[in-house]
Amino acid sequence: MDTNTPAPTVWPTLQARDCPALIAFLVEAFGFVKTAVYRDGDRIAHAQLDWPEGGGIMLGSHKPDGQWSRQPGTFGGYVVTDHVDEIYQRARTAGATIVCEPAQQDYGNYEFVAADPEGNLWSFGAYRGEPRT
């Protein structure tokens, strides 16, 4: 296996009305890394944004008649990070809509929630899930 290829993970997908603008926002506001963008004319056919701490997302321009069509603005994702406060400040500075301020949750997570310009919700927290038994 190529050492530059990440191990298998879950990669959520979403579509956007203005995919180039959403990509720029996700990079600036949250810190995703733009890894690949494939265009089909003025549309984004496929883009890969990596999360620096592992995994990432895939997205593209909304294609209502497409076989894999998702309604823009309906995505919700949880992103694991050891840097909740730094990402919160970055998101605020970039103009993200903060839905829930950083807070400690009853089950032990520390997280905040923000909306992107398309209306998708992003939760950033330190909770990595429960160990498998």
Rank of each mutant, 00 (worst) to 15 (best):
S61P: 05
P8Q: 02
V33I: 15
Q89I: 00
A36P: 00
A115W: 04
L121D: 07
K63E: 15
V79G: 03
N4Q: 15
V27F: 02
P52I: 09
T9C: 06
V33W: 05
T13Q: 15
L26A: 12
R132G: 08
G56S: 01
R92S: 11
N4Y: 10
M58S: 08
S61Y: 05
F124M: 12
A45T: 09
V27R: 10
P64D: 05
A96Y: 02
Y88C: 13
I87D: 10
P117L: 01
V33T: 15
Q71A: 13
C100L: 06
P12M: 04
Q105R: 09
I87E: 11
T35M: 05
I23D: 12
P131F: 05
S61A: 06
Q104H: 12
A96T: 05
T74M: 04
E53Y: 02
L49G: 05
E53R: 01
H46C: 11
L121T: 13
G55E: 03
T35C: 01
R17Y: 00
P72S: 05
T5K: 13
Y38L: 13
Q104N: 13
G60Y: 00
Y38Q: 14
N120M: 12
P52E: 11
E118T: 07
D85T: 10
E118V: 03
S123Q: 10
A115F: 08
N4F: 14
A103E: 14
P8A: 02
R132S: 11
W51Q: 04
E130H: 13
A94S: 08
R70M: 15
R92N: 04
F75S: 03
F112Q: 06
Q104Y: 03
A126E: 06
P131A: 12
I44D: 04
F112R: 03
W122F: 13
Q89P: 02
F124Y: 13
W11S: 07
I57S: 00
T74G: 06
T74R: 03
G60T: 00
D42E: 15
T5D: 08
Q15K: 01
Y110A: 00
E111K: 02
F30Y: 13
I44S: 04
G108E: 05
H62G: 07
L14T: 03
S123H: 03
D50M: 09
A47P: 08
R39S: 14
E130L: 15
P102M: 08
P52L: 10
A91R: 03
V33D: 14
